[in-house]
């Protein structure tokens, strides 16, 4: 689960910065692993206090190969609840966790008293220092979960969003040179077409694939767009132009918000 977006959003400081990098004795390493485990792995429905099992497997009283633990912690187990921690933990952190989990192999049913693992400093949200405030604001607006109509409903950038509209990381220099408002509100839609079905429904759509029996489209009448598989025989006509305007899609954004979003897109494109 490599989630680029998360890396940029926050680097939760599970790591106890003061200790990182220093070489520690075994018991100190295990103690550090214990603390990391309590903050990241024992929480809620995960592995349970001191690995006693919960929604995720029991870790107490089991033996694991060191290399296996490192890999699973760093890369996660795809398509399970086990996330990859490689983007959030240092190698030292991972080593400490491995030492701690291995120390549980001989543990009996009862974990250490929870008080040992308590009252740690809360994780701190660390902002990616590379980002200018404009880019950061633009990125937040682009994916803004608090608005029903947001760019990521129709554009997939850095792995997040639905790829209905074009890939914005591939904009040309000339396109990028445009003013934000001109580019985002008044750009001429070329790919959007108007579909009329036999039962009289008319709507703007992007054609994904047209087969003899089935036509796959993105229906743009509402946001988020709907991927629909229409029987080809149900389609009366497909027209261009559709009457659809990109300005309708970005209505929820004020002009200065569009400027910030545009700065973010330029930043994404330039990074490529």
């Amino acid at each position: 689960m490599k989630l680029a977006i998360r890396v940029f959003f926050f680097l939760p400081a599970l790591l106890l910065a003061d200790q990182a990098g220093t070489s520690l004795g075994t018991s100190a390493v295990v103690a550090r692993g214990d603390k990391l485990f309590a903050q990241g792995c024992a929480v809620g429905y995960c592995h349970g206090s001191a690995g006693a099992a919960a929604r995720s497997p029991r870790l107490r009283g089991r033996t694991f190969e060191r290399d296996y633990l490192v890999k699973v912690i760093r890369d996660g187990i795809p398509n399970t609840a086990m996330p990859a921690w490689g983007d959030r933990l240092t190698d030292d952190d991972i080593n400490a966790l491995v030492a701690y989990i291995q120390s549980l192999a001989t543990a009996s049913g009862d974990g250490p008293a929870p008080s040992e693992t308590a009252s740690l400093a809360p994780p701190v949200a660390v902002k990616d220092s590379d980002l200018s405030p404009d880019v950061r604001q633009g990125r937040e607006l682009f994916y803004d979960p608090q608005r029903l109509q947001r760019c990521s409903n129709c554009h997939r950038v850095q792995g997040i969003g639905t790829p209905v509209g074009p890939d914005l990381a591939k904009l040309s220099r000339a396109q990028l040179a445009a003013e934000a408002v001109n580019a985002l509100k008044y750009g001429r839609p070329r790919r959007v077409q108007g579909i009329v079905t036999k039962d009289g429904d008319r709507f703007p759509a992007i054609l994904i694939e047209r087969g003899p029996s089935e036509t796959r489209i993105y229906d743009l009448k509402a946001i988020p767009p709907v991927q629909r598989n229409l029987p080809t025989t149900e389609i009366q006509s497909i027209q261009q132009p559709s009457g659809w305007r990109h300005s309708q899609a970005v209505q929820s954004y004020a002009t200065d918000e569009l400027k910030a979003v545009w700065t973010f897109i330029r930043w994404v494109t330039e990074r490529k």
Partner: peptide, 9 residues
């Protein structure tokens, strides 16, 4: 055991 925590989206 409650533990202070700050959210990360």
């Amino acid at each position: 055991t409650a533990q202070a925590e700050t959210p990360s989206e």
